[in-house]
Simulated scan of single mutants.
Amino acid sequence: MREAWGPPASVEFALACARSCLAAPAASARRPQPGREGREGRFPRTARGTLGGQRPGALNYVRARSPREGDSMSYESAETRLGAEHPGDTLRRSLARLASIRFGDASVDEVLGLIVSLAGETISGVDGASLTVRRQGLLETPHYTHEALLALDEAQYEAGEGPCLEALDGGAVVHGTDGLDRWPALAARAGSMGIRSVLSEPLECGPEVLASLNLYSRAASFDDEAKEVSALFAGPAATAFANAAAYAAAAKLNENLREAIATREIIGEAKGILMARQGCTSDEAFDILRRASQRTNRKLRDIAVELVETTEHSPARGGSGGGQPA
């Protein structure tokens, strides 16, 4: 099994309960289809090397270090032990990490980065991985294991065809083999990088395809084991994506509700001040605030905050200090 090209993320995980398929907030650079710009996601950080260069050593997700005095095990001996793992152990470990994500500590962007990183570590024959999503009709690649892979995804976005688009739109696994001749634009760029095959796996939650997980290889095709492991990995990955998006949406809604309650309270206080000063009704006080907001091109809440703060710091509190908001 081939290794990932970068160190894995470290996240403290525990099971979350959010169960909804919501579109993730747009966080990366993008432009309308066809054509787009991707950006590097911020977690987990992935390797930035050269596709045509020499590959790192086996299991490079183990951080090498120089042996220190008193160490009971050197880096080489640890690598040897991990290298003897059964392929199924890697899959079980990756699925356990996905299933135990603590969404309060990991953003949607971080979860997507983890999915891409784990895919590269888990599925045999992978030389690089990326993730394609569509947000409000716009295609983007929020995470990838190598900068050069972004050009392969963009070639498909610009041409309006390719395995990642077929997987995203059709919800079916697409296996492009031996040269990728079915998609000329992709084949031209992939050939210059030595990429000969791609496996695009849809990440589905219910009836919705959330993303396409794109696996690139220098081999002529992915073998049956790789395709089986990819299918087993895709389900939990999609669930983690959907749950992260649901949690983020719930957190945003909670934040908006808190802000709305705070705004209502401060406006109510400002109305009370105006009613006491000018002997007007609640509706008339609100109309005074509204006109002040329009006249100064400021938010009504800001006008209310200023009025309340000015009144609180006034030396003649409780007097007939009259006046209207600016």
Results as ranks from 00 to 15, higher is better:
A106T: 13
I115Y: 02
T122G: 10
G128S: 04
S124T: 13
F103A: 03
I101K: 04
G120L: 02
I115L: 13
I115P: 02
T132M: 12
V133H: 00
L118R: 06
L114K: 08
L114F: 05
I101P: 00
G125P: 00
G113V: 07
T132R: 10
A119L: 07
S124W: 01
L131I: 14
L118T: 05
Q136A: 14
V126A: 10
A106N: 11
R135Y: 06
R102Q: 11
R134H: 06
L131P: 09
G125T: 10
G104C: 06
D105W: 06
G128A: 12
L114M: 15
Q136G: 08
R135S: 09
G104E: 14
I115F: 01
I101F: 15
G125D: 14
V133F: 00
Q136Y: 08
G104Y: 04
G120N: 05
F103G: 07
S124I: 04
G113S: 09
D109Y: 05
I123F: 01
S124H: 10
L118W: 04
R135L: 13
V126T: 13
I115S: 02
S107N: 06
L112Q: 14
E110A: 15
V126R: 07
R134G: 07
L138S: 12
A119N: 05
A106G: 01
R134A: 14
V126M: 10
D109N: 11
G120C: 04
S107V: 04
G113H: 08
A106H: 11
D127A: 10
E121F: 07
A106R: 12
I115M: 04
L118N: 03
I123C: 09
F103N: 06
L112V: 03
S117W: 12
R102M: 03
S130G: 14
D109E: 15
G120Y: 00
F103V: 03
R102G: 13
S130P: 08
V108M: 00
S117D: 15
G137N: 11
D127R: 07
L118Q: 09
L112F: 14
L114E: 15
E121R: 13
L114Y: 05
L138K: 11
S117M: 11
L138D: 13
A119I: 10
Q136I: 04
D127H: 11
G125W: 11
L118E: 14
D105A: 13
F103E: 07
L112A: 07
V111N: 03
A106Y: 03
L131K: 08
G120F: 01
G120T: 02
L114W: 05
I101H: 12
V126Y: 06
D127I: 01
L131V: 10
R102K: 07
R134S: 15
G120P: 02
L138R: 15
T132P: 01
V108A: 06
T122N: 10
A119G: 12
S117F: 00
L118Y: 08
F103K: 01
I123T: 02
E121P: 00
V133N: 01
L131H: 05
D105T: 05
I101R: 15
V108W: 00
V126L: 10
S117E: 15
G113M: 08
L131G: 09
E121V: 08
L118F: 07
L114G: 14
S117N: 14
T122F: 09
V133M: 12
V108C: 15
G125A: 13
G104S: 12
R102S: 12
E110I: 00
